[in-house]
Write a protein that binds this DNA or RNA. Structure first.
Lengths: 202, 202
DNA sequence: TAAATTATATTATCATTGTTCATTTAGTTT
DNA sequence: AAACTAAATGAACAATGATAATATAATTTA
């Protein structure tokens, strides 16, 4: 029966994916290697190659899982706000907090160049668009209500995207600023600044 | 004679450093390995360890060299402008162009986490401050002339720093946007936006 | 049910890269 | 020339990604 086989296969793939995700969340990308992940999944390292082309394929399957995770977390943290500026801020902060909580995932998303082959290209676009998707609804809302002009819509999105990536890059990779409190205060300032640029009469 | 020995040693160190820099500029961080670099320097791989603690030490010596390179290039490209807004823009663009020209160096500066040990910590701070140093003079000038309020001085610096890192991160690592022309136009927009935020009556 | 076939998991093995160490080679002093 | 010192190197090991041949388990067929 073909159906059973598919189910079983996808379960085993799932064990490897789960193991890779745990390792990424806990110890980061550097700790993800064929032997560690396979052992965590309960298989020999060679078995991994029966279910994935190579380690990269496995790792980048995790990317889309984490995107869903992150969006869910952001939705939860912003549900109590009305659409618009306040919710936008909440969503930005939730996104940043997600990546702070799991530096390994940030690394995976933004830092590790989508290795070599064509398999990376679509992933790259997905990630790029991910950041826009996080803020899209609220920016649309603000454009709709006239708070943001339609020329500024794209600029705001761009500035939020770039500065968020920059903030996380410096904080996660460089430990700068060194403590979390200070970092959060800088995040606030950066988001307010982006909004100040574009939002009329704040 | 002790002096001779030091000179000879520092020359040989220089051969390794030069080889590492060439490889970084040309093929990027991934291509830098003990054997490649040593061969390029004209020595066996083992010789490298007579002059450097390990490969990381060698690589991070390159960082400060490249910072100097970059600053020189930025100075050249902005020399014809008067201090202030226009020169600031020119310097930002020159910085971005430098890293576009050598994606491997960007990777080295911003992406590769200063590995593990304590040797990384000071380097991290140096790099963080590097971006500020690029724009410092002009922002000071604008504060002095009253174009930028003293509260906004820090915000402008922060936004420029973060958004520059973000822009390069997306462009270099993700090839997004895909062509250079479009990227440059986005860079223009981003810089203008940062300035718009903070500079009075532009 | 036993044999044959297929699917799955694993061990053995190789290639690459960073690193160390003992040995060789070259240079210097006596 | 012999003894000594310093520099350069090759042999070797560990970690990691990957492949392929073999062993094991499951399934089908006679």
């Amino acid at each position: 029966m073909v159906k059973n086989k598919e189910l079983q296969e996808s379960r085993i793939r799932g064990y490897f994916i789960e193991a890779a995700k745990e390792t990424l969340k806990g110890e980061g990308l550097k700790a993800v290697n064929v032997r560690t992940v396979s052992e965590r999944a309960g298989y020999s390292f060679a078995t991994l190659y029966n279910y994935f082309k190579d380690l990269n394929e496995l790792v980048f399957i995790c990317v889309s899982d984490f995107m869903d995770d992150c969006e869910t977390s952001v939705d939860e943290h912003s549900a109590r706000f009305n659409p618009g500026q306040e919710r936008l801020k909440a969503r930005m902060k939730a996104t940043i907090n997600y990546f702070i909580q799991y530096p390994g995932i940030f690394e995976l998303f933004f830092v590790e160049r989508m290795n070599d082959l064509g398999s990376g290209q679509p992933t790259a676009r997905t990630i790029y668009e991910f950041t826009d998707r996080i803020v899209m609804d609220d920016i649309r809302h603000m454009t709709g209500s006239g708070e943001v002009s339609s020329e500024d819509e794209g600029l705001l999105k761009m500035n939020l995207r770039n500065s968020m990536a920059g903030l996380l890059l410096f904080y996660n990779n460089r430990l700068q600023p060194s403590d979390y409190e200070e970092f959060i205060s800088i995040v606030e300032k950066q988001i307010d600044l982006s909004l100040r640029l574009c939002v009329k009469h704040t």
